[in-house]
């Protein structure tokens, strides 16, 4: 295994209000590559962190539109072009009779798009995360809030960022090496 290097700074908080205020300060300080970990959902945290809307709906829409076009194309190709066949006195192809096909493929591909979008945007699948190197990581699902600022952030400076996290109320600041 290769030598460990600094991955991030991890600040712990034990009280929700202090943690909630601190997230806004990290946001206002202009950090980009950072995240928070909480033992339970904290309402309003997205706004506090300055996180925008999820991009997943775009994938859903693209998947849906693709599915609709695919359904239109295959029904037209099969019934209207490649092997025209009169069924029940209907036209070879019209938008009415194959609509269930178009509709079902819209739904199916919208679902695929959503799944794909969720995995892509969450950078999944991944088998390990550098933060697991922090020995008390499981505390984030028990009684401790984390703010993690990654070394990859352009503003990251080990000493200054450490001081900053202490200043905004962190109880402990750990250097996570991975």
């Amino acid at each position: 295994m290769s030598a460990k290097s600094t991955y991030a700074l991890l600040a712990t908080f034990s009280k929700t209000p202090e943690f909630f205020q601190a997230t806004a300060k990290v946001r206002d300080a202009g950090f980009k590559k950072w995240d928070v970990f909480t033992p339970f959902p904290v309402h309003g945290l997205d706004d506090q962190m300055g996180v925008g809307r999820s991009k997943v709906p775009i994938f859903t829409l693209c998947g849906g539109v693709f599915g609709f076009c695919l359904g239109t194309l295959i029904t037209w190709y099969m019934n209207g072009f490649d092997y025209p066949l009169i069924v029940g006195g209907k036209p070879f192809w019209s938008p009415v009779f194959p609509f269930p096909v178009m509709y079902e493929l819209t739904i199916l591909n919208a679902a695929f798009g959503t799944l794909l979008g969720m995995f892509t945007m969450n950078l999944l699948p991944r088998h390990n995360h550098p933060l697991f190197e922090y020995e008390d990581f499981l505390k984030s699902s028990d009684d401790t809030f984390f703010i993690v600022i990654e070394k990859a952030d352009p503003q990251f400076d080990l000493d200054k960022t450490k001081a900053f996290l202490t200043e905004i109320g962190a109880e402990e600041v750990h250097v996570v090496e991975a």
Partner: peptide, 9 residues
Amino acid sequence: QYFLIYNAN
């Protein structure tokens, strides 16, 4: 409603 009536004709 339309589709079933259209198909049954």
